[in-house]
Amino acid sequence: MKRWTGAGVGRWLAVVVLVVFAGFPIYWMLNTALTTGDERFVGQSLWPKLSRLGNLFEVFDSGVPLLRWLGNSAVIAVGTTFFSLALAVLAGYGLSRYRHFAGRGLVAFALFATQMLPEALLIVPLYALFVSLGLMNGLLGLVLANTAFAMPVAVWIIKSAVDGIPYEVEEAARVDGAPRFAIFAQVTLPLVTPSIAAAAVITFFDGWNEFLFASTFIRSTEKWPASKGLSSFIGEYITPLSTVFSASLVFTVPAIIFFLLVQRRIISGLTAGSVKG
């Protein structure tokens, strides 16, 4: 049995405090989703009524068009993922394997620079662009706008993954007579699938969570994604909080699960990729 050292107790305390700090709001979402209005009025218990866990699913019959919202979010997210990955897989590979070509620095800088572009600044020119392209009030417009911001991140993740694949494997394929694109598709891509999956998760939830474009470019409520739909509850006191937070949970849980699965690769892609260029 290990002796309790001062440092050990200190770390244990720190972990408990941090876990409570980080976990409480998520926990509170669940707790509130399981309460009734009266309970909240007299003071919400710290302990959830776990017996009511089944009530979470009543949110689908509560009159809130949650399924439609989630469906729209899913369409946007899938579209964003598809466009982002199609572009990012090619570009990430190209930036990793070709170090000297005219314009490389410019592309690399542009990809990094999108990290500092405020969406709010681009929204007006994009608005004008979408009006002239007839993309207003449609999910395709959101997909295209989201891709502009999600794709660069995916490029960095994939580029840093390809950086980690020894070049010799590609040389071997070249000697074996594989054409350039077959080397990319049959040799290198299969080796970076875990990172492509990570990039897919991050772009998917970029589309899933996005709010600003959705609330500016979408007029009709039946095309709202869940982010916009949920935001309509802020400052509104008609929908019961249990319904609001059941909906929030349904919206949040998939994101948390997928991020936990792939966070390691996202981290290495973001930090290694974004600065080393």
Binding site: E168, V187, P190
Partner: peptide
């Protein structure tokens, strides 16, 4: 190659077959 540069995701059979498949590409 010094590192052998085998295709890690392919079986030994597919590794050996690769040059033959590519010659018919």
């Amino acid at each position: 190659f010094q590192s052998y540069a085998l295709y890690p995701h392919k079986t030994v059979r597919a590794n050996i077959a690769f040059p033959l498949l590519m010659s018919r590409f």
